[in-house]
């Protein structure tokens, strides 16, 4: 099983002819992902190492049966690309692009509620289901196939924790980077719900950071809706208020959104929280051995 991407994924890359889109699209294909199409307006009819390029997403869907899109277009055009993918009936939209304006994301988030589709990102490393499919920029060699679901707001921190899990002999069902922006498509709760329903996933690691209240919402969801054990890690305990820590979403305003508040909310609802990535990985290993 696994979630979001697997052997049934038929991937179209919006922006396949750009340097990053090409590099990562082909890298995903080399991993085993079914890369069926690219979209670049004005370049329809061309191909990128045998992958056909179309002018529109709807043409790519009609011709190739693409069901998942990875977006690599520059930030000023990313929102348009997301709407185009949704309109073409793409079920899973994964937007890697960094720097999408927050107001665009408010409208996209509201629009998503009217569609039967899931969006991951923007400003995210993508989704990897080890041994099945990789869609995005996650370095797959760090991860092994297994039963731990991993969901995170951060890219490299995900790699760190994945690496620690691998060192402890644990593998992953799926690794989902939901992105570090203030408003993203799928939240922790949506991904947790998918892990809960996935037979391959037995434990879940949730990697949060300062800012917003998605970890708190996840805490309530875990308590009321999840049977599988969840371990959390939160970054930014020592971040000063009012400063953006690299991610647009990682800023504390007032007392809300601190790492401590998130840790408290999670622990009150029975979720174990590691204070370092190493400790979080060890907590999962202890659960897996039990």
């Amino acid at each position: 099983m696994a979630i979001l991407v697997d052997t049934d994924t038929r991937l179209v890359v919006q922006g396949l002819t750009g340097s990053e889109g090409k590099f990562h699209g082909l890298r995903n294909r080399a991993y085993g992902t079914q890369l069926v199409a690219g979209v670049t307006p004005g370049k329809g009819g061309q191909d990128v190492e045998g992958v056909p390029v179309f002018d529109t997403v709807v043409a790519a869907v009609t011709e190739t049966g693409a069901n998942t899109s990875m977006i690599f277009v520059p930030a000023p055009f990313a929102a348009d690309a997301i709407y185009e993918a949704l309109d073409a009936g793409i079920a899973i939209v994964i937007c890697i692009t960094e720097g999408v304006p927050a107001h665009e994301m408010l409208r996209i988030h509201a629009y998503l509620r009217t569609r039967d589709a899931t969006m991951i990102g923007p400003n995210c490393p993508g989704v990897l289901s080890p041994e099945k499919a990789n869609v995005g920029i996650i370095p797959a060699e760090i991860f092994r196939e297994g039963s731990v679901g991993l969901v995170s707001r951060s890219g490299t921190l995900t790699y760190q924790i994945g690496h620690e899990l691998t060192q402890l002999g644990l593998g992953n069902s799926t690794i989902v980077g939901i992105g570090g922006d203030p408003v993203v498509g799928a939240s922790f709760v949506e991904v947790l719900a998918r892990f809960e329903a996935d037979p391959q996933t037995e434990h879940v690691v949730m990697v949060g950071e300062i800012g917003g209240d998605e970890e708190e919402k996840a805490a309530s969801f875990i308590e009321s809706e999840m049977s599988k054990p969840v371990v959390a890690y939160i970054a930014g305990f020592t971040a000063p208020p009012g400063k953006t820590m690299g991610h647009a979403g990682a800023i504390i305003s007032g007392s809300a959104g601190t790492a401590q508040a998130k840790k408290d909310a999670l622990e009150e609802r029975g979720v174990r929280v590691g204070t370092t990535p190493t400790e979080a990985a060890e907590l999962v290993a202890a659960l897996a051995r039990a």
């Binding site: 890219g155 570090g180 820590m245 790492a259």
Partner: peptide, 13 residues
């Protein structure tokens, strides 16, 4: 560090 999350985590550690 490289990446906001990992760097934040490094500051914590």
């Amino acid at each position: 560090g490289n990446g906001a999350g990992l760097t934040m985590s490094t500051v914590d550690v």
